[in-house]
Amino acid sequence: MSIAADQQKSKRALFAQPGSSHDRIVGFLQVFLPLLVGALLAVLVFSPLANDREFSFVLDQKGVDVASERMRTSQALYRGKDAEGRPFLIEAGSAVQKSSGDSKINLEAMTGKAFIGKDQATIQAQRADYDIDQEYLQVNGPISLSTMSGYDMVVNNVTFFIKTQRMQSQGAVSGRTNIGTFSANRLNADLKARTITLSGNAQLRIDQNAIK
């Protein structure tokens, strides 16, 4: 056999001798490996007691992203009929219904068309709550109403009952009609009869600008 082969054989024979590097490795591993397994077992056994972090997982309602409203629509459109059976229409830039039980829908950038007597009126309000069941518009802030025949008014913080074409203020009210500007503690308006009743510290200012 060649010298190389002989050398190769003797190296392997050397490697197989007792006390060679191979024996040392095996001897070391014989001791180290069981130790490693024991350590691992110990860690696993004691890990739940030792660490303080809460591993348990509870679905926390506050943490989860709950949808705040039941229905959100943009370009909402509501139709209904007033007391005399004539149609009215409410459009809104965005409409949000808080919860299913709540019949109030918060409207943004609302415009509406309704009949006031025989006159057709356009209504506008930036923020209003529309009650689907009783069909009234509760407006926080100004609502403007103008009819074809030129009767126009802007009133703050009133509830507009579309069915009966009446308006009522929740509290202090201020506004303007084509007559002049007014303010009072309470307002009650029968739009069909075109009468506005202001009560409680009522003020009205008429700017006569007719040149005599």
Binding site: T177, A184, L198, A202, Q203, R205, Q208
Partner: peptide, 15 residues
Amino acid sequence: NAPVNFSAERIELQD
């Protein structure tokens, strides 16, 4: 011809 200011307990605007 000047502007007129009204104030009262109750005002009814009958358009």
